[in-house]
Design a protein around this nucleic acid. Sequence first.
RNA 1: GGUUUCUUGGCCGAGCGGUUAGGCACAGCUCUGCAAAAGCUGCUACAGCGGUUCGAAUCCGCUAGAAACCUCCA
Length: 501
Amino acid sequence: MNEIRAIKLHNSLSGKKEVFQSLAPGRVGMYVCGPTVYSDVHLGNCRTFVSFDIIYRYLMHSGYKVRYVRNITDVGHLLDDGEDRMSKGARLSQLEPMEVAQKYTVGFHDIMRILNTLPPSIEPRATGHIPEQVEMVKAILDRGYAYEKNGSVYFDVIKFARENPSVYGQLSGRVIDELLAESRENLKHQDEKNHPADFAIWIKASEEHIMRWNSPWSVGFPGWHLECSAMSTKYLGKTFDIHGGGGDLKFPHHENEVAQNHGSCGCQPANYWLHANMLLLNGRKMSKSEGNTISPVELFSGDSPFISKGYSPMVVKFFMLMAHYRSTLDITDEALQAAEKGFRKLMETNKLLQATSIPARDFDGSESDTDRAILALIDDAYKGMDDDFNTAIALASLNEIGGYVNKLVNKQIAESDIAPWVLERMKTAFANFIYDIFGLQDESAGAADGTVEGLMRLVLDIRASAREQKDWTTSDKIRDALTEVGIQVKDGKEGVSWSKQ
RNA sequence: GGUUUCUUGGCCGAGCGGUUAGGCACAGCUCUGCAAAAGCUGCUACAGCGGUUCGAAUCCGCUAGAAACCUCCA
């Protein structure tokens, strides 16, 4: 797959599906809002990053060179009491803020690795880009879209929205009238801001605030929305191709981000905005603050009241792939069990397929109906991905192809019904989708080293002899013992095979 | 209260005007010493009420229910 494919994607900016057109031919710049590292990542984060990992992988698979930037937020989020999240975490656990950030960054990377997502091309930290953020505040001030009050700088949303009515609110669908209406309601909470809709881009640090930097306005720290504007600009340019993130970031974060970029350079930061939908638990959004949450580790271990047992990382990933990234996905124990079975079946089918060969024969130039059906299914899988990265469609197609694989292996369809080159296409397509595009891993692969293979061959040979002599007691004893250690014995027409559960 | 989105068979979940999505579960059958695995078959749904259309799960309206956002959030 080296030629560039035509890909359609849903652009939150227009609310429509559009044909993707990169700014530079064959190259894509993509920015995705990363995690705030003040506690362990939760699953919701993971779904978003898995979704964008698939998008990243598919763009590359489709022939693009992609620069994928995903930040680490290690400063800037305000709590209700105005204390920075990072410094609060530090206070509680008696650690330096950077120690907290480091600890949870490492944990985040571990989970991302376990889920077999590719690391981004660049993973910039907010604290590593204070000068860039200060520069951006200056630029916004210069262009008159911000004002200073007591050492803090605020973005003038009302002024910006009035002068750029087609820009502010485009992403979230919010309008100025609405903002003005809200203002009366919230007026009593008014602080230094001229208007409640305004937001801080530089905040003067209180005395006990640990994270602080010099700036022309005060010793302080940058506002939350600013880091993404500054870092995307630095690494991808003022205007780049794709900006992604969780759907709950649309407002205010992304809307404000657009405003900042516009406010500093007068240009649109990203041509396409992609939003991954929420992961639900019990039909509600998973939320750290509401305790309605299950962590990746708990999900893997089964140590959670919400599930009956643990589910492996690849099962969890497969579960996410069964739904489209723009749909909400509800976690239930039953759905996870279905995913577990589905995942194992797909991987088993792949193993069978890759081990299958059919005698070479002269290609007579004709395709059988089976050939055509299989080729159409492979095409469907790609078309599904081309259509806004519809992994559910791609999986459905792979499952259908899997049916043919099993039939071929079981001799329910003749070898002569499948052209050798079609079989090769099947192998390639399966491998491409499973490993390159979905980034799935065979979790039982580790067990199949030489020693285990040898032992298994010995054990199964003994069982085969017992069966020849109709010694069912011995045969079943072996089978039951293997089942107990999680190895399934499969008696097929073409002999015995086994797999680890 | 405002904004937006959603409501698909036992469960999860595709679908973007005309086709069996797919997975899981369940039942029957084939294979099998038995079982498992695998295959085949069945289960054929679109919240309700109207409307548009030759034709609607898909478009429009109303009603009911749910969720997200409006405040930190992936």
